[in-house]
């Protein structure tokens, strides 16, 4: 189960599992976003390389307009994937506080 939508704070919130089956849904939503975008991952349990591809493509597009993606409330599993893939050097990341 995966969902993506704006939350009450105007952030983009993802929930569930962002895998290869859900990447197109996430990409279609994020393709409509412009300017500085805060992606709230508090309720996202899992992300594979397909999800990393979505973040990378979106971040590149937004950075070309001098903004970008900021990732907040990232859980430890997903942060580990960011570290292994070097994404921790590409994104502004805030971890989920327990």
């Amino acid at each position: 189960m995966f969902s993506i939508d704006f939350n009450d704070l105007g952030q983009v919130a993802m929930t569930g599992r962002l895998d290869a089956a859900q990447a197109a849904t996430a990409q279609a939503f994020l393709d409509q976003v412009s300017g500085e975008c805060i992606l709230n991952l508090a309720e996202l349990e899992y992300m594979s390389s397909a999800g990393l591809g979505v973040l990378l493509k979106t971040h590149k597009r937004l950075m070309s307009g001098s903004s970008g993606l900021k990732l907040v409330n990232v859980n430890s599993h997903i942060n580990d994937i960011f570290r292994y893939s070097g994404f921790d050097k590409l994104f502004d990341i805030s971890l989920l506080q327990k």
């Binding site: 397909a50 990393l52 990378l56 971040h59 994937i81 292994y84 893939s85 050097k89 590409l90």
Partner: peptide, 22 residues
């Protein structure tokens, strides 16, 4: 895969298998 490459040079290609091997 150069995980230290700057954003402009990064692509998704090969990342999945790279993660598997890790």
């Amino acid at each position: 895969i150069n995980i230290d490459a700057p954003l402009t040079e990064r692509t998704q290609g090969g990342l999945g298998v790279y993660l598997v091997l890790k």
